[in-house]
Simulated scan of single mutants.
Amino acid sequence: MGNQQSTAQIVAPLSFLYDFAAQQYGMFSKPNMLDVHNQNLAAFSPQPFFIAGFFFPQQLFQLAYLWKLWRGEGNAQEREVMEKYAWWYSLGNVCIGTWMFFWNSSKLEVSNVFVVINTLSQLFYISMLLPALDTRSTPSIITHVVAKTFAGIGVLDLLHNTSVAYFKDVPPSSLVQIATGVGFAAAASVSDGIFGGCLVYDLVALSMGQHGSWSMLLGGYAAMTAGIVGLRNWF
């Protein structure tokens, strides 16, 4: 256990640094990731500044998680939760960091492979492996926030990258519009406030990135999703 713990404490921060360095490359290279975004628009292209607005506070929670992981804070059970998540967290960072290089090269189909791996793995972790939230435990709270926000923004990444990789400039069909509402409503019905809040944020970002009736419909879906999450967590 000691060897596994020390490995997790090293791998997780290194994965964060890799992803952070890749993001700097993505912002300052030419073309940068915003240039590629603007050149490849589709029905699920969000307002890009919403993504930046999400990642800044989310990275602060990541740093808090990494600090507690590195210091081995908490009791044995709390440390075990943080260490087990560290491997899924590291996988996510490696996927998103690698995604950046293909995205900035406009190899959108290849970049989408890494988005799919990241999003599905994070959703699997929070739905199947993440222990219940202990509101009396700071390590538990921080782990839940990082894991669920990672998965939550991953949903937006998956919709966005898949749409631009395979359906660039294609308007959403009636089936896609209905499926979007049904999918988010279903996800909201089983979500807590953290992940559910991310789903609402995703829809607002999509609504602000689109126009016309599709934008208005996405805004309505955001209100609907917020209502479902609120009611579920109230009761």
Rank of each mutant, 00 (worst) to 15 (best):
T149H: 10
L123E: 08
S90G: 10
Q122H: 15
V113I: 15
N118S: 11
A64D: 03
V81K: 07
W87T: 15
S137N: 06
M82Y: 04
K107G: 03
D169W: 05
N75P: 09
Q122G: 04
M100L: 07
K107W: 14
S121T: 14
A151T: 09
R71D: 11
L108M: 07
F61P: 00
W103G: 00
G154Y: 06
C95Q: 00
M128I: 10
S111A: 15
L129K: 13
W99Q: 05
P172C: 05
M82E: 06
E73T: 15
N112I: 03
T98E: 04
K168R: 14
S121Y: 12
M100H: 02
D169S: 11
L133V: 12
R136N: 15
S106G: 00
K107F: 11
W103I: 01
Y125K: 09
K148E: 11
E83D: 05
F167I: 00
F61W: 06
L159N: 02
T162H: 05
Y125P: 06
C95S: 01
D134G: 07
T149S: 14
V145G: 00
W99Y: 14
V146N: 00
D169A: 13
Y65N: 06
S121Q: 09
S121L: 08
I96Q: 05
H144Y: 13
V170M: 10
N104D: 08
Y166L: 13
A76C: 04
I153Q: 02
L60H: 02
N75Y: 07
S127C: 12
T149C: 13
V110L: 13
W103V: 01
L108T: 06
K68N: 11
A64P: 01
S121N: 10
L66M: 06
H144D: 10
K84T: 11
Y89V: 08
I141W: 02
D157K: 07
L91W: 09
F101Q: 03
M82V: 04
T119H: 06
P172E: 04
L123A: 11
Y125E: 10
L129D: 06
H144P: 08
V113R: 09
Q62H: 11
A64H: 04
F150L: 13
S127I: 09
S163Y: 02
I96D: 02
E78G: 07
A132M: 10
S140N: 09
L66N: 01
